[in-house]
Design a protein around this nucleic acid. Structure first.
Lengths: 203, 203
DNA sequence: CATATTTTGTACCGTTTCGCATTAAATTCT
DNA sequence: AGAATTTAATGCGAAACGGTACAAAATATG
């Protein structure tokens, strides 16, 4: 009773690890092209176990998106450490993103949300909701830092924190798309640098 | 002989119009989730006719992407009319894009390339090639205008035309993603305005 | 030890998928 | 008019799809 052991046969797998494997499949193939057989093979779970643990394919996909979103927000908060200059904060955000985006095996994977949820967003309301919320939360977290930067005088007096945050996000969206389109690391890093410079002003 | 009439039974459909109908299907559903039955119904062509005219599903998809890319480049060249100020040029580019992106029925469709080709780019080399080339050509066309702007003194002396062009594109990529994520027209227009201001300087 | 409960694995169901084989129709060339 | 050629339409077929029924296995409870 003390340990949370449930009543029936115990699970023979780690749900968190399985979710990570499923995420990789969705990341490469997208939602529609990822079959339950693909997911079953990658997770080493047979379809009924997958279904029992996570629900149907869309439920599973939404779970992976939600986990990814959470990881992204954690990484963002860390990169935006307010004891560092805004310029460094943004550079860290982009560097962290590129480390994830370029991790592909054949071709770079980009961002799970932008790369795979965007296409499903039109016809699947729940996907659209997660995507919209993820982008909005991301904007909001950067906006908080921008607001602080204005107070501190790191930005011009009349600067609009909300719009600057959205433009900082825009650079990330572009990195995500371009990574998947095959752009080189050097190109992407140059774009990130230029983005920082445009938003924060010349060094 | 003068008219291009071929030898056998003439086609009972307009290939260009059919391609446009197919494009709409791919635009909403993406490549993987669009079935040949969907495409057949939308184009009023039975599957064998589709197959005979355009090849398999990927061929058809690539055809629609190529047509979309061409249309986009035409619109871009028109928006970048060098007799207008750079600021107006960029505003026209974004306004034209939003007119297309927001045209959805239930949810906005965004950009066909960014919204649907990005997800397939990892595992389908031909899609990745078209996407990469499309983004690059778009950047290049804007870069030409940026170069002119530097010569004319519309931009700061040390401005880097290539990087400014890529950042101008980045704003478009973001508009494309956010449209599909459900952002309002007002939000998107505000982002476009702020992008112009950041790149061209305050009015 | 028996019972209840949960997970696992096999096998299967009905549907949808993409692509093509085949035949009928429409046109040009000889 | 008849042969050649191209398109149209029906329909098939093998495979893959998402999802589930069912029985065996593993654990907790009484």
């Amino acid at each position: 009773m003390k340990d949370g052991r449930k009543r029936g046969r115990p699970r023979a797998f780690d749900a968190k690890a399985a979710l990570g494997k499923a995420r990789d499949v969705f990341w490469d193939k997208g939602f529609a092209a990822a079959s339950l057989d693909n997911l079953s093979a990658a997770t080493n779970l047979n379809r009924p176990s997958l279904y029992g643990a996570f629900g149907d394919k869309e439920d599973l996909y939404l779970d992976t998106l939600e986990g990814y979103r959470q990881d992204g927000m954690d990484a963002l908060a860390e990169a935006l450490d307010p004891s560092l200059p805004l310029r460094d904060n943004l550079a860290r955000v982009y560097a962290g993103a590129l480390a994830v985006y370029l991790h592909g095996e054949t071709a770079a994977r980009g961002c799970l949300l932008i790369g795979t949820a965007t296409v499903e967003a039109v016809e699947r309301e729940r996907v659209r909701e997660v995507l919209g919320r993820s982008l909005g939360d991301f904007d909001g977290e950067i906006e908080k830092r921008m607001r602080l930067a204005v107070e501190r005088g790191e930005l011009a007096e009349g600067a609009d924190p909300q719009m600057l945050a959205r433009l900082a996000s825009a650079v990330m969206h572009s990195l995500a798309v371009r990574a998947r389109a095959g752009d080189s690391r050097e190109t992407l890093e140059a774009i990130a640098r230029s983005g920082v410079e445009l938003i924060c002003g010349p060094a």
